[in-house]
Design a protein around this nucleic acid. Structure first.
Length: 561
DNA sequence: AGAAGTTGCGCG
DNA sequence: AAAGCGCGCAACTTCT
């Protein structure tokens, strides 16, 4: 932190850039104006010489230009991402003043129009706005002063860089393997407009068994009426509901629905639209979920079905490092609550086995549903029935989530370990609660308010756990990236072009899982980097508290399990 | 005709 | 098999 050079890098319309050197107090030291043609080279030189922290309006808007020119940044402060955190955090005495100017532009919209429109007058205004906002953000971070917001903003900003780098690098994707899976599962690829052969056969069989030769299976209401006529009194066409009925049409119908889903979500159309040059390049949106988890836009990056994972293939001469965390969220809960009993349970690879060993429940499956129920707020069903047993064995951990739920039910705000705070409940919600507290309130209204209060309580209960897990993952990612940057270039470049053709890189991230794509000569070192990064993430968050965070990790040519 | 809402299912 | 949290997307139906 001490002698770190800080440079605000501001893009103006027309891809002219201004770089402003700041001193430790955040005041301007000097200013360099850069034309579009020279900006990337100047940034690359400065990065190589001083490794500064780059203050950007938004990595999403600003970084692709640099990546396209082959320039990678080491460290950043992303004003848009940090604005969202610092505006809402309960950790600050005087949080950031909310400003629409610093709100992320919608993924659907293009270009950072908001900012430019606002300040089209002069480039100087855009620079002044960036410097002023950075000053404000530094004030909020410094006032909180226990290091947590500072760590969170640094990690969030690193995430902003990583999201763009992963898009630029892409996930290596073998179109032939994908096509093979589709053909094997769905049947021969149809001529334009038609359905693949297996779907045609299954559809015909369903129609025959339902006695309706022209039934359109993709229409919920029509399908439901046909099922009723055939003697299946289902209330919906959902998978779980249908599976409960014993009728010859159920099996082919469920198969048809499964295939239909694969075709519409990740069929040949998806392949043509989203995979180019052997790379899947989704749009990641760091902090896109209120809890701090990432969201994605386009391509369904976070919903890739496991059945397609064999299509994730390393390039020749390269390897994948595939790692995911075993039961990240309950481990975070144990550490946040400083619950020694639960931490003891978490020692080892399988937390659920530990719960069984503690005597709380009899089987691993029960342990899983009990733990999930505890974090999600289950009250009924088998899961809800098991939660009280956990309360006896892990009173501290349960007290933490129970308190978060109560705060939410009362309309309060909860925060993650590093200080990302939950949104306040909506005006609607608050008004409903207010109306239901009157002495003469309608009992139906009171019941409805109570229900909505519990709904919000389940959200805040889960928020603290899911959000803290997102923070662990963010630090993990940043630490992995930091280590990979020290690796030498590949002896053999990947066939795909771009800034990562020779560089070990993160290729995919999904809440508690990463995939790295690395030259084979670095695969073992990359695996070590992933493990070391996990250990550092745990220590950064929880210091010496003895929480075990285990990875399942493998080096492979394919992401298939 | 197009927007908005609903359903169902993929992921963690 | 489990009913509890957070998402995105496609296809359908209903509303304007």
């Amino acid at each position: 932190m001490s002698a770190e050079r800080r440079i605000a890098l501001v893009r103006a319309p027309g891809d002219a850039w201004t770089a402003v050197d700041l001193d430790a107090a955040g005041d301007e030291v000097s200013r360099t104006t850069l034309g579009a043609g020279e900006a990337a080279a100047w940034v690359a030189r400065t990065e190589a010489a001083d490794a500064p922290r780059w203050i950007l309006r938004s990595a999403r808007d600003d970084y692709p230009f640099l990546l396209a020119a082959g320039v990678r940044l080491g460290r950043a402060h992303d004003l848009v991402l940090c604005h969202a955190i610092l505006r809402d955090t309960a950790s600050a005495a005087r949080p950031l003043t909310a400003s629409p100017r610093w709100v992320r532009t919608d993924p659907a919209e293009t270009a950072p129009a908001l900012f430019d429109l606002d300040d089209a007058r002069a480039e100087g205004d855009a620079v002044a706005a960036v410097l002023a906002q950075y000053g404000e953000q530094r004030r909020v971070i410094a006032e909180a002063d226990d290091g947590r917001l500072s760590l969170l903003c640094a990690a969030e900003s690193a995430g902003g860089l990583i999201a763009e780098e992963m898009r630029a690098a892409g996930l290596p994707w073998d179109e032939r393997v994908h096509d093979g899976i589709l053909t094997e599962t769905l049947g021969a690829r149809p001529a334009a407009g038609g359905l693949p052969s297996r779907m045609v056969e299954l559809g015909d069989e369903v129609r025959r068994l339902l006695g309706d030769a022209t039934l359109h299976l993709d229409s919920q209401p029509k399908l439901l009426r046909a099922l009723h006529r055939a003697g299946v009194p289902a209330e919906s066409t959902g998978r779980w509901e249908l599976a409960a009925y014993d009728h010859p049409v159920i099996a082919p119908l469920l198969s048809y629905k499964k295939l239909s889903r694969l075709l519409s979500a990740n069929g040949w159309g998806w392949l043509a639209e989203w995979v180019r040059e052997g790379r899947f390049r989704p749009v990641y949106i760091p902090g896109g979920v209120v809890t701090g988890r990432w969201a994605s836009a386009g391509g369904g990056a976070l919903q890739l079905p496991r059945s397609l994972r064999p299509a994730v293939r390393a390039d020749p001469g390269w390897r994948l490092v595939v790692a995911d965390v075993a039961q990240l969220e309950p481990r975070m809960l144990a550490a946040m609550a400083r619950d020694e009993a639960m931490a003891e349970t978490a020692r080892g690879t399988d937390l659920y086995a530990g719960v069984v060993a503690s005597g709380a429940v009899a089987t691993r499956e029960e342990a899983k549903y009990a733990v999930l129920g505890a974090m999600y707020g289950a009250t009924t069903g088998d899961s809800g029935r098991l939660v009280p047993r956990l309360r006896r064995v892990y009173p501290q951990a349960m007290a933490l989530v129970d308190a978060a739920a109560r705060t939410g039910e009362d309309g309060g705000v909860v925060s993650t370990w590093l200080g990302r705070s939950s949104p306040a409940p909506s005006a609607d919600w608050q008004e409903l609660q207010a109306r239901a507290t009157g002495a003469d309130a309608d009992p139906a209204l009171v019941a409805q308010a109570r229900r909505r209060a519990r709904d919000w309580g389940r959200f805040t209960r889960n928020f603290v756990v899911q959000g803290t897990a997102a923070e662990w993952s963010l630090i993990w990612l940043a630490e992995i990236r930091h280590r990979l940057r020290g690796f030498a270039d590949a002896e053999r470049p990947a066939p795909a072009s771009g800034p990562f053709a020779r560089a070990s890189h993160l290729a995919f991230f999904l809440h508690d899982e990463v995939i790295l794509h690395v030259p084979e000569e670095h695969a073992d070192a990359a695996a070590d980097a992933v493990r070391d990064a996990a250990a550092v993430a745990t220590t950064r968050l929880f210091g010496t508290f003895p929480i075990d965070v285990r990875l399942d990790l493998r080096i492979a040519d394919s992401a298939d399990k």
